[in-house]
Amino acid sequence: MSEANAAAMAAATLSTPSKGRRIKAGTVFDHLILILGALFMIVPLIMVFQMTTVPDVEVIKTGPSFKIGDQLDDNFNKAMFEASGFSGKNTGTNMLLNSFILGIGFAVGKIVIGMMAAYAIVYFRLRFATLAFWVIFTTLLLPLEVRILPSYEVVQRLGMLNTYQGLIIPLIASATATFFFRQYFRSVPEELVEAARIDGAGPVKFFVDILVPLSKTMIAAMFIIMFVYGWNQYLWPTMITTEEDMFTLVRGIKQITQVMEGNRIPEYGRANLLAIIAIIPPVFVVIFFQSWFVKGLTESDK
């Protein structure tokens, strides 16, 4: 190789990094959009957080500001451990617990029921399986809000007002979960069922030993969707729970900001802090299950 050639090559290798470092206008623009979007999402949250650090009086007087006060600790204690309202138990921790019970009960219940319904529809020779499926599917057109009065009456007559089962069971049947599991089960090769039959696995064993482990990514995906959905329920808990120790977080926050009677200032700091706490569990569920979530909805691991 000639020297000139080598020199040219050296020059080329030298020039490449500087080329890479040159920032393109397009990249700047892309990042600008992303940053603006992120700010748009996060700023309200930061404002809420700021307001939890200052006394409630200041929130009334000035609204959100740049001032970081010293009330965070105080507000946190109040929010989590001090009961508001008339009865003694609706502290933040209690509401958090109620929300968890609702969210998890809701998600687990929907997954169990949805999976079993899909299992019946896909794997058993039922006479009107397809029809049954579409009937279930059309219930998507009848969300809770449409049927809330009859649902309330049923729950009330069953004596389930102010109970966890009253909160969870009426919402547990899920067309969405049934639909997703049905589609998933249909993609499981039929030979797997047949191999299991020859291996001596009955319907229950096949479901537990093979179908459930195979569906775990799908279950994770459903869990996220349903947990967040259950956690954020507002209307139904408002109808069903009248006793304050059954309140969920989402419901409880509203309750706190409403105490305007007399000369008391609404407890903004406390309510805002509860709002932030209410966001955290769904965020963690999403982060924790994220990779499974994507797999469950896109990839088929068979």
């Binding site: 090769p189 047949e194 191999a195 299991a196 020859i198 291996d199 030993d209 093979i210 195979l214 068979k302």
Partner: peptide, 29 residues
């Protein structure tokens, strides 16, 4: 029932249980 016919079957696409190890696949029956 297929399980009681004392038969074993090998399928075209193998029909192995994807979430089980080879050992468990063989032992399942």
């Amino acid at each position: 029932d297929p399980a009681d016919r004392d038969i074993a079957m090998v399928f075209q696409n193998y029909a192995l249980y994807p979430h089980m190890t080879v050992r468990k696949n063989i032992a399942y029956g």
